[in-house]
Computed example of a mutant assay.
Amino acid sequence: MIDAHRQRLRSAGVRSEALDAQTWRRVSEGVPAWWHDCDNALYLAEGAYLTDAVLANLTLFPMRDVVIAIGSPMEHLTSLLVGGDRATVFLDERVVLTAGEIYCGADSQIVLHGPVVATRQPLLDARNGGSIVVDGDQLWAAGVYLATDDMHRLTDRTTGERINPFGAHIRIGRHVWLCREAVVTGHVEIGDDVCVGLRSLVRGQKVPARTVVAGTPARVVREDTTWDFADTP
């Protein structure tokens, strides 16, 4: 991996040790000629890959200066779509996105540090210069939705001001459990060791570490907590 792309990934929120832990190979085969002509780069770590169907859709429409680094075998990923120039995507080793869908728009970033286990149909959407940065040790139940923006403008008719998020930034700390159909959207910061309850909405909020939050909008329902992958009494 060239130094400029390493710096680009670090600036997007990728930890240096995550980059240094793997050997990266720049993909030269299986992509159209315009991919290289437009200064795009797809890197794969040893043993990592995208399926032919995902790769074909990724390179369906021309874009420029895109950097993507894939550190895990993505046999369960359904789609990885780039919506414009200068998108940046990093999927670390031990990232499993079962039937997952990723969209990264122009000037936007998606960074997942491993391990991440998403049991079914996670949807990640970063656009308008927004970002999603996730630390490791994640458990996401089915139907989790992370989106920086609402994709359409909501306007105050008196002032003309946009009142819903635009180019928001989502940061999720280490050891976070997102329960089934949890939604995280807008400017959000979730601390370490958090559990977000079933069908809860975290929107434009800062969630303290070591808490359980639930509801729409989410609120703290329990403090000084932790959780475990083991389902023990």
Rank of each mutant, 00 (worst) to 15 (best):
I70R: 00
R64Q: 14
V116G: 06
G83S: 11
F90K: 08
G114H: 08
T59L: 07
L124A: 10
I110M: 04
C104E: 13
V82I: 15
I68M: 13
R64M: 11
V116L: 12
G100E: 05
V116C: 12
S79I: 10
G129T: 14
G84N: 08
E101W: 04
G105S: 09
D107K: 10
Y103N: 05
G84L: 02
V111D: 01
G136C: 07
I70T: 09
V89H: 09
Q109F: 01
E75W: 15
Q109P: 04
I102H: 02
T98V: 14
I110N: 06
C104A: 15
M74G: 08
L77P: 09
G130R: 03
L80M: 12
V116H: 06
G130V: 09
I110Y: 00
E75C: 07
D85H: 02
V66E: 12
V66W: 12
D135I: 00
V66G: 09
D92T: 14
V111F: 06
T88A: 03
D85M: 10
V95N: 05
H76A: 13
N128G: 03
L112W: 04
I68Y: 07
G114A: 05
L77I: 11
L81I: 13
I110G: 05
I110L: 09
M74V: 08
L112Y: 00
R86Q: 15
S131E: 12
I132A: 04
G83M: 05
I70K: 06
D125S: 10
H76G: 10
F90Q: 11
L112H: 07
F90T: 10
F90D: 02
D85S: 15
G71A: 04
A118Y: 00
D85Y: 02
V134S: 01
P115Q: 03
F61H: 08
G83F: 09
A87L: 11
E101L: 01
M63Y: 05
G84W: 03
G105M: 10
D107Y: 13
A69C: 12
R64S: 15
G136M: 07
G83D: 01
C104H: 05
A87I: 11
Y103W: 15
I70W: 00
M74T: 10
L91P: 12
L77E: 03
D135T: 00
T59W: 09
L60Q: 14
L124E: 10
A118L: 01
Q109S: 15
C104L: 12
I102E: 09
G130P: 15
L58K: 06
I70M: 08
D65C: 02
V96I: 12
I68H: 10
V82T: 15
I110E: 01
P122S: 04
G83H: 03
L80Q: 03
L124D: 07
A126S: 14
P122T: 08
Q109Y: 00
G84Y: 01
V117K: 11
P115H: 00
A118M: 02
P62G: 00
E101T: 14
S108I: 07
V133S: 06
L77Q: 11
D85N: 14
V134M: 02
T98R: 13
V96P: 03
P122C: 05
V96H: 04
S131P: 13
C104I: 05
A69D: 12
V111I: 14
T78P: 00
R64W: 11
